[in-house]
Nucleic acid binder design. Sequence first.
DNA 1: CGAAGACTTGACGGCGGTCAACATTGGTGG
DNA 2: CCACCAATGTTGACCGCCGTCAAGTCTTCG
Lengths: 257, 257
Amino acid sequence: MSQKNSLMTASAVGAKNDGLAVNSQGFTFASTLDWRRLESIQAVRIRQSIVTKPTTVLKQGQIATSFYSLLEGWGLRYRLLSDGRRQILSFLLPGDPVTLSALSPRPLAYSVQLLSEAVVSEFDIDLMNRHMRENDELRQSANACFERELAMADEHMINLGRRSAKERIAHLMLEFDTLLHMRGAVHGGQIFIPLRQRHLADALGLTTIHVNRTLRALRDEKLIDLRGGILSILDRERLMALAGFDGAYLSAGTVTG
Amino acid sequence: MSQKNSLMTASAVGAKNDGLAVNSQGFTFASTLDWRRLESIQAVRIRQSIVTKPTTVLKQGQIATSFYSLLEGWGLRYRLLSDGRRQILSFLLPGDPVTLSALSPRPLAYSVQLLSEAVVSEFDIDLMNRHMRENDELRQSANACFERELAMADEHMINLGRRSAKERIAHLMLEFDTLLHMRGAVHGGQIFIPLRQRHLADALGLTTIHVNRTLRALRDEKLIDLRGGILSILDRERLMALAGFDGAYLSAGTVTG
DNA sequence: CGAAGACTTGACGGCGGTCAACATTGGTGG
DNA sequence: CCACCAATGTTGACCGCCGTCAAGTCTTCG
């Protein structure tokens, strides 16, 4: 039903067309994505929305009539199976496109939840498509985003299919660390990660209990310390060796020209 | 080193510019992808190559200087970890783009192997990019392909993260069945799948031994029978219920207009 | 016919799931 | 300020799916 407005109902704030972030210094974190180019085309944006607590903004089965981009805060893209199992397909960080796979209108195969304190931009899909036709830079940005999403999906599949619980968590933490560093969102040696153990479990194909046990083991081995949403990487070298981490795939979104 | 020519060395056949397939009846299988549009732009294609036995045509780490599309036969896109573990990221079927995620030149994060009896087309990336800029239909085809790849990757992640061995195999078999039906490559009730149990294992995050046990169980339960590369689906209804299969994601590549 | 690879089956073990109990945290209202 | 409650985190005991190891069979191909 009221698909198009689901984001609006998330908050009373709504259409906020002067925006934090647009062309401002605060938007440097999105440098890997170049959706700045999109933001800079004012006519394409419909509105910005703000949520202040965990909110499911898109549900699997509905048709996305707009294109969304996450400006601030974290989100999840996930699928619920009929028996309640959940698989988190990707985490959305500030600057990430939310519904890249939905440029053409079709029922979504996934849901999107925003965690507390998130800001999203909403764009008109048709207008965006028209601009992509005429503006080659924008088209290349979109292609680069697609490539980056595919590279990250590959990495996620490798994590799920061929790594142990310890390796999976180590790899994901290094991914977060690298991304947040790239976007200048790290203060000191500690990183804020607003996820519950449940989120890690559902992303990594584990149970919360085993995530807990594994975090404990990693802490005992002085590799990482993740508690209360604060991640400390204690021994990056050993951690990267354990995870087999190579962050090259994370710069796949950079337009090389 | 001789990256660009790696495909040529696979076979003595090489540049074959009249082609089987181009605009011919034999090419209907690719209808979901619309790379026909690409094929129809003769200037973009560099050559066709044929392999007759399993051949690794692209290796992770090298830079793809061309874009490839699989015309006939099956292929694998996979990653090798340093300790020998392998994760198959996707299977390539006739009509599939091989290096979609490599439109911009960067080292590949995966390898590609063609199974016996495969035919690939090679395209000039720069020319293709130029055509995408000028030909909106081609651009939309590429976008549709990207969306489809992402949708299939999502499904693969769900398989790996949240399904049992039996469910994973059931789901993959139904995916093959649906794709091959869509492309008219099914004769009778039996489907030819040129994969070893090793391939299923490496795609589904299992061991060959457990794949074997699970295939046995599925056969005993009269759900599917997969032996010698021939797949028979014995009870599609129960199989779909077991796998939680919904094939909608497989038509994500269709350009709706 | 011999060798190499793929398939099959059984025995055993471990990683991670399940169940249960309890501690901790944070939010709410009296 | 504190009692209360729900969500989250923590830990232990036990179990089962799937991995490991081993032995043997079948297929293919030179």
